[in-house]
Amino acid sequence: MTDRTSKSILPGGTRARRSLYWQYLVEPYLYLSPAIFLIGIVMMIPLIIGISYSFQSIELLKPFDTGWVGLENYQKLWSDRKFWLALENTFWWTFWSISFQFLLGLGLAMLLTTQFYGKKLFQALVFLPWAVPTFLSALTWAWLFNPVIGPLPHWMASLGILSEPYNIMGDPNLAMWGPIVANIWFGVPFFAITLLAALQSIPNDMYEAAEIDGASAWQVFTKITLPFLAPMIAITVMLRTIWIANFADLIYVMTGGGPANSTQIVSSYIFTTAFRKLDFGYASAIAVALLFILLTYAVFLLWLRKKLVKT
């Protein structure tokens, strides 16, 4: 860049302005344009189209019945009992998944900051579930819960949790635990990795000072580790909550939303409506509702975080 400006014969002022213009407007966008272009075409434009779909009737199975319908899809949504059930299911699905993922992930990250024999191998193996393709995690756990080829029903029966070894994913009261367990298994490594990264960035002299002062392990954890991790935890939990609430793959593969919609969450309901019924208008209305709920949640959490940081 220096050679370019020095070669030009323009007077000093213009040259500086030109260089500023180049550096401020043109050069960064040369590096950014492919990313912006793709995100625009594949994500932002469809997003806008998707919102507009929610005000239309678009059913691929009824090609002559398309057109603007105003708020009809939303009215239908309001009185759709399946949607409210799915909303409730989404809450429990997300709540239990994130709670266990976070606690187990934190435990694992803390263990990984200590020294022990074979740590590198341990770390690689224990993070492995994250690399397992989602559809395969789903199938694997579905098989584990199957009494014909899976051990879990038999174990649960002999522990007295189940009266007899049957598939809990056929029981509307318990079915949700199938995908939740699979989700915990799949998500613990993610939390462990992010929390481990955050733990490693805590300055070591803090711990040394605490040790000199004779602090107990519990004190070190609550007075140094947690406060340091708090901002990281807040942001990770928020992003992850949203991600899990949207995460339909496991449920779609393991239970397909059944039995009797007992495991249908909002995002799997969107997918079934779009994919099975090809009702794009209604699917988009559900999606907009979900987006709105998640946005409210995110804004609330950010507001909470701001308030907590201030005091």
Partner: peptide, 15 residues
């Protein structure tokens, strides 16, 4: 783009 449900754009993308 990391926050909105990706499934939201499945119908528009299909079309």
């Amino acid at each position: 783009t990391q926050m909105f449900p990706l499934l939201m754009i499945i119908a528009p993308i299909y079309k």
